[in-house]
Design a binder for these strands. Sequence first.
DNA 1: TAGGCCATCTGGTCCT
DNA 2: AGGACCAGATGGCCTA
Length: 246
Amino acid sequence: MPAPLETCISDLDCASSGGSSTSDLSGFLTDEEDGARLQPSASASGPPVPARRGAPGIPVTSDTPRAQDDEQERRRRRGRARVRSEALLHSLRRSRRVKANDRERNRMHNLNAALDALRSVLPSFPDDSKLTKIETLRFAYNYIWALAETLRLADQGLSGGGARERLLPPQCAPCLPGPPSPSSDAESWGSGAAASPCAAAASPLSDPSSPAASEDFTYGPGDPLFSFPGLPKDLLHTTPCFIHYH
DNA sequence: TAGGCCATCTGGTCCT
DNA sequence: AGGACCAGATGGCCTA
C-alpha cells in the first residue's frame, strides 16, 4: 500500500527544513539572498550598513528616516527572496525525491518480477503456497545443486561422459556447492557458496539437452515425493531443499 | 497479540 | 549531475 503522497511531501518538508545543506541552496539564491547570507552581522549587530555598491567616499548613515526606510525595504525584499528560493528548493527536492522513489519502486518491482520468474521455473508444491523471497532463493540454490548432482550421477552411467563438462563451466567442478549443512542458515550459505559464480552458472535447465530437463528422469504422477521433475529419487532424499523446506 | 513478510520511503554511497 | 544500488526505518497485512 503506497504511502499517501501528502505524507511524503510533508515528511520531506520537515526533513529538508531541518538539516538542509547549503550547497543545495547555492544554485537558487538570488544576489539579494547571497548578500543577506554573507552579511548576517549587518542586521544583527551595530548600525545597519546599506549594501550599496559604488559611490565610494560618500558617507552612508542610517540616521535619517529615509535611510531607515530604505534599510527596512531591503530587509523585506531579502526576506521575500529567501522565502521564494526556499520554496523553489523544496519543490525541486520534492520532485527529485518523488522521481527517486518512483525509480526505486520500479527497481523493486523488477526485482520481484525476476523472483517470480525464478519461482515459475522451480518445482511447485502440493499446497501451492507461494514461496517467500528467501525461500525462493534457498530453494533455487538447492534445486540447482540437485540438478547438478543429477548430471553427475547421469555422467557416471555414461561411457563417454562429458555431459557434465558440456553443461557446467570447468571452474565449477571444484567448487560445486554440495548440500549445505542442515544447520546452516541463510547468512552462512546464502551469502557464501550460493553467491559464488559457480552457483549462478550451474544451471542445467538452461541447456535443453540436459538429461535433467528431459522426460527420462521424471517420475510418475503417483510418486509420493514432491513434484520435482528430472531428479532421481535417491537424490531427492539428500537434496537439501527437502531438509530445509518446511 | 507477537512475529514474519512485504512494500515503500529515505538518505547515503558509488558509478557513469 | 543524475541514476543505480543499498540498508535502515516504518507501517500494513496475515497467521499462529
